[in-house]
Design a protein around this nucleic acid. Structure first.
Lengths: 193, 193
DNA sequence: GTCTATAAAGCGATAGAC
DNA sequence: GTCTATCGCTTTATAGAC
């Protein structure tokens, strides 16, 4: 009998895809590699995802979106001041990136960029994930007293600066861009109080 | 006889590669497609780039780096205040992105992310390009009176925020992230005066 | 649901004539 | 420098047994 804690085949496939596409992107990740990493057969992959690689990428992007949303939500509630919380968040990102040997950057950015203008469904899934992350930041700012419009606008730049700094940190193999992003975003938020 | 204005085969190959990798990334761009777009034969491609696709990608990244550096240098000198100049820059980026049908994002980011941890030479070329862009911003800030250390740190976040906003704008097919990035970066720079 | 075999096409790279 | 032909391999996707 299947318990709650067992991981089903479909789930293993999604996780393997998310992990591989985070590290290699969409094009470099093959279905054969996915099925091996997931300990599933190619037949199972097409059984659960008849739409093939593109459908699988959508599921992987959504999975990565939920995972980072949890990290973000936790970090945002670990400090009284949202500016401080964002500094904590950049610290977490820097640590995770370094500890992975500079391999695990943003779970969806590479796939998002590769799909832009070529795979509309994947692109749309990525945009929805970004919007969800922004909403977390925006909500946190509103709860601290920021007007809705200011909060939404700041949330855009907070997420985008984190994205750019994460990319830069990964390529340069240095924590510096993320730490600077944290400090500067804190300053920016303070300037709007 | 060959004049200065003729474009040699090698140059056409580099330009075609840069253009294709900007839009599709490294993995999705084939050598056959490159040779067709460049109106060159596969033999010519390997004649000029015996290292194959990876060597070609390094040249394409450097080419894209120089092209954007020129746009950046011009934009930075079009206003007295560097904060204003950056707002002009985000406007340029938004216009270019929209006018290309949301196809031409950052010329090197997709390739940089795909190569991270897998093609060290391409990754290093991308990091050097980013460092060059930062130096342009940093120099402009120093000339306005910012201390060297503050200027360098701000330059990191300026470039990284532009990168994140460009990515976000492309995926969302909206100019908003870039315009917000411009406004917020101007505010950030003002906060350090 | 799982598994194997295979089709059909495309890939990067090489060889060798011109 | 240019061009064509081709090698060896991998890719996504499908078929059909179990």
């Amino acid at each position: 009998m299947k318990t709650k804690h067992e991981i089903g085949t479909r789930d293993r496939i999604v996780r393997a895809t998310a992990r591989l596409m985070q590290r290699q992107g969409y094009e470099a990740t093959g279905l054969k590699q996915i099925s091996q990493e997931a300990e599933a057969t190619l037949g199972s992959v097409y059984h659960f995802f008849p739409g093939g690689k593109a459908e699988l990428a959508v599921a992987a992007v959504q999975h990565g979106g939920v995972e980072f949303a949890e990290l973000l939500r936790e970090a945002l509630e670990r400090a009284e001041d949202p500016a401080e919380a964002i500094v904590l968040c950049t610290g977490e990102l820097a640590r995770g990136l370094r500890e992975s040997g500079w391999l695990d950057g943003c779970p969806i950015t590479t796939t998002a960029l590769e799909s832009a203008g070529r795979f509309p469904e994947i692109q749309r899934a990525a945009e929805e994930v970004f919007a969800g992350w922004r909403e977390l930041v925006s909500g946190r700012l509103r709860r601290t007293g920021f007007p809705a419009e200011v909060a939404e606008e700041l949330a855009h730049t907070v997420i985008n600066t984190l994205e750019g700094a994460e990319m830069s940190a990964q390529v340069a193999q240095s924590e510096t861009p993320l730490h600077l992003a944290g400090r500067h975003l804190a300053k920016l938020i303070a300037a709007y109080r």
